[in-house]
């Protein structure tokens, strides 16, 4: 099944939770915030959120800025 992760199409195995998907695709320990289909998902809920076919996921973190 496919998801859109930070604007890119990605193939994932079925029955994965958000934490597993983040761990699979992100090399960043500093991932702080996730949005699934436009809704913010708190980090303590990442284990409970099942990722579904067609989901749009955004992973964001802080960078330098003025």
């Amino acid at each position: 099944m496919h998801i859109t992760l930070n604007g890119q199409k990605k193939e994932i195995l079925p029955s994965q939770n958000l934490r597993e998907v983040v761990g699979r695709f992100s090399q960043n320990s500093s991932v702080l915030i996730a949005e699934v289909n436009g809704a913010i998902v708190k980090k303590n809920q990442w284990d409970e959120i099942r990722v579904n076919d067609g989901d749009t996921i955004e992973l964001v973190s802080f960078i330098g800025g003025g």
């Binding site: 890119q8 695709f25 992100s26 960043n28 992973l59 964001v60 802080f62 960078i63 800025g65």
Partner: peptide
């Protein structure tokens, strides 16, 4: 600071 998509 700013907020951005992480680089995968």
């Amino acid at each position: 600071v700013a907020l951005r998509r992480i680089d995968l």
